[in-house]
């Protein structure tokens, strides 16, 4: 075992980790905003509903890696050239948004129909009902699954390595190619992912327990 290799290359790996965190945070933020919009659109009717549904199904029922390939390698054929980081961000944002949309829709539909009926029978419009009665309750219910999704997204940023975005997995691969210390480097890379995701995972479980305890 050559642990000195690890020590020597740790700063480079940590730089890669920065790329992972940056990509992860970007995708979580954009994906959440877009996902809420799409999730609410799925409560609508007609064209709005159809477009939102098509978006969700398209990005949930194809592999994320295909989406990255298509945006990075496929779109240039129709004149859209994005650099690797942007391509990976776009693909992952859409993937995150499609999954967030399902979480939002699920949370809203898990509320008893009586909540809608009570609000509507008091004369509230559907927008007022959504804003003051449904969303405040649904938001709490989206938190645990949303944080679960964030954990998945953080790990899935490693897929961006396939188009050579500089993040932790790419950094690891480059070090291994140079030093041939596969065992040590991949072990450390895995440990770094674990250190990133484990606290998020524990926090999710705590939050879940707390929300379950509080639900009337």
């Amino acid at each position: 075992m050559r642990w000195t290799v690890v020590v020597a290359n740790l700063p480079y790996l940590l730089e890669g980790l920065q790329g992972t965190v940056l990509l992860g945070l970007l995708v979580m933020a954009l994906g959440t905003v877009l996902g809420f919009a799409v999730g609410l659109a799925r409560l609508g009717r007609g064209v709005v509903y159809a477009a939102a549904t098509a978006f969700v199904e398209l990005f949930r029922d194809t592999p994320l890696i295909m989406q990255i390939f298509f945006i990075f390698f496929g779109l240039p054929a129709v004149g859209i050239r994005l650099n690797a980081f942007v391509a990976a961000s776009v693909a992952m944002t859409f993937f995150a948004a499609a999954n967030t949309a399902e979480i939002v829709r699920g949370a809203i539909q898990s509320l008893p129909r009586g909540q809608w009926e009570a609000a509507r029978s008091l004369g509230l419009s559907s927008a007022q009902t959504l804003r003051w009665v449904i969303l405040p309750q649904a938001l709490r219910r989206t938190l645990p699954p949303l944080m679960g999704l964030f954990t998945t997204l953080l790990k899935d940023t490693s897929l961006a390595a396939i188009v050579n975005v500089f993040e932790l997995t790419t950094a690891g691969r480059r070090v291994v190619e140079r030093t041939l210390a596969s065992f040590e480097i991949w072990l450390v890379v895995a440990a770094l992912y674990f250190l990133l995701c484990y606290p998020l995972s524990v926090a999710t479980q705590r939050l879940e327990r707390r929300l379950v305890a509080e639900v009337p």
Partner: peptide, 25 residues
């Protein structure tokens, strides 16, 4: 309308439940 299952809004206090519609509508 009054429902069998009450259908109060669980995230609001009693007072907020009652004032919501008069204020909004």
């Amino acid at each position: 309308m009054v429902f069998q299952q009450f259908n109060l809004f669980p995230h609001l206090t009693v007072l907020q439940n009652i004032t919501l519609a008069p204020v909004l509508v």
